[in-house]
Amino acid sequence: MLVLAFDTATPAVTVAVSDGAQVLAEWSAVDPRRHGELLAPGIERVLSEAALRPADLDSIAVGVGPGPYTSLRVGVVTARTLGAVLGIPVHGVCTLDAIALDAVGLDPGLAGTPFVVATDARRREVYWARYVDGARVEGPGVVKPADLHWVGPVVGYGATLYPEHLPRGRAPEHARAAAVAAHVEAGLPTLEPVPLYLRKPDATMPTVPRRVLA
């Protein structure tokens, strides 16, 4: 079963293709402003490296955040549209879950320790979730780093950004598509391919006053 996985909810644009037993090809770039440009060429590159065509794919797995909205949407709309034109299912994976799975893979000892995943939510906040035995028990949410009051290990870029509040940082910093694929292949819970926005849109009433001379 060939799964194409990608994630655009962190500063990384990351793509992988896996056959269920192993990752056949993967590619990542960290460039927070260019997800829109980089994702499709990344997919093309990974599939051609694995000598596959889009029509060979059986499913798509996409990170659904939480993450900065514009780049997050690039991944989700790409997954939905590609899934629709190829006629294959699209699974959503919470990006923080994929980062947690990756972290436990890098350091199996972490599985026995409660930890937090924290990523950059901009505006001096982090997206976060808490894990026990590798499974999410709280979150995802968005919070000021100081308000997390968490003294245990912290996985993700949030710890890099706010070491004063989150001192026990661990790898990885960003999402990796191979972990998104692994999450699905492990039979862990998936989501609809709908962004986890967590915040309402910034929509303020226009500042144009009714009285221009008042």
Binding site: G36, P54, V74, V77, T81, L82, V85
Partner: peptide
């Protein structure tokens, strides 16, 4: 959003 969707159709 439109650009990403168009690329997905074109590449797919």
């Amino acid at each position: 959003v439109g650009v990403a969707a168009a690329k997905a159709i074109a590449y797919g």
